[in-house]
Amino acid sequence: MKRLLKKDELEKMVADLMENYDVIAPVLKEELIAFQPITRTDQILWDYPNSLKPVKEFFLPPREVLFRFKQGKAEPMSPAPKKRLIWGSRPCDARSLLLLDKVFLDETKDIYYFEKRENTLLIGLSCSDPQESCFCTSFGSGPHSKEGLDLLMTHLKDGTFVVESNSPRGEELVKGRGRVVNTKDEERQEKVKEEAEGKIERALQPDSFLEKLVNGFGSPYWDKACLQCISCGICRYLCPTCHCFDIADEDSERVRFWDACSFPNFTKMTSGENPRHTKRERFKQWYNHKFNYFKQNHGVFLCVGCGRCLRSCPVKIDFREVLDRIPAQTASPGGKG
C-alpha cells in the first residue's frame, strides 16, 4: 500500500513511534553523518548522501559484550528490551542486512544478531541524489529499492513523501496516516526514481569479476595492485557487508568486535604461523571474499554498491578499477582459489 504524507505528518509519525520504539535516525554529529538514537524529530536529517558508518553497526556492533564471567561461569547478556526502529536507512544498507543474514541466520543462528534483527523495524529513505561513488544498481539494489525494508519513503521534492509499505509490520505503522496516493503521485514518484537511477552512471560487471578472480588467483597482477594499500581497516569497517569479527576477553567480559582481513595479524596464529602473511594475500582476500567465495557459497555477491570503500579510502584506491583491471586469463593449474 502506498500513502502520501507531508513532512510534518512524517515527523508526527516519528514522534508517535518514539513512545514504543527507540528511534534511530541520521543526524549530523561534528560534521559527520551518523545514525543514532534521537529524542527529538528536529534532529533528523531528511536529505543526506549516506552515513559514514553503515547501519550494520546496530546489528553487528563495533563492540558487543557477549558474556560476563562470574566464578568462571559465562552469563549471557540479555538483549535490549525496547523495540527499535531505524528511520531513514538507505536502500543499499537495507540490502546489506539481507546479505549478513546469510552468515548470522544460517543453520547455526547467532542469537545476538538474531534478536536485534527481530527487534528492529527498518524505514528506508529513497536516494534522490546518488553520488559518483554509488553503484547500487550493479548489485541488485537501487536508489529506490524496497528490499529488506518495512517501509520506503520517497521524497517528491515538494515536502511530500510517498510511503510504501513492504511488510505487515510496516503497513501497521503507516495505516491511517496521510492519504492514499493517486495516479499523479505515482507518476511523480516514478519520475523521481528514474532521475535518481539516471545519476548512477557507472555499471559494473560483477559476473566478469567472479570469473577473473577465479582464474587470476595466482596472477602477478596482484603484486602491483596491492602496492598502494596501507593495510588499515577503514574500507572493511565502513563496509555494510564486511562482518569479520574477533572475540576476546576484556577484564571479566567476553567481547565480540569488528576485525579486518587487511590487518597483518588477522590470520596469525599463536605459533607464529601466518597463512596470509603478505599484503598481497590480504589485499586479494577482500575482493575474493566479496566477489568469489561468497558468490560461490551463497549465490550472491557480498557487496551492495554503497561506495563507502571508494569514498573513505585514505589513499583513494578505486576498487572498481582494481576489479576491472584484473587480467582476463584462462584458469591456471591450482588456481581455483
Binding site: S231, C232, G233, I234, Y237, W258, N265, P314
Partner: peptide, 22 residues
C-alpha cells in the same frame, strides 16, 4: 575511535614489526 588503525598505517614512522596493540 573505531580502531581502524589508519593513523598507524599511514604514519611513515609507525614501523614497529609488532605494534603494542598486537
Amino acid at each position: 575511535c573505531i580502531r581502524c588503525y589508519a593513523c598507524r598505517q599511514i604514519c611513515p614512522l609507525c614501523y614497529c614489526p609488532e605494534c603494542i596493540t598486537e
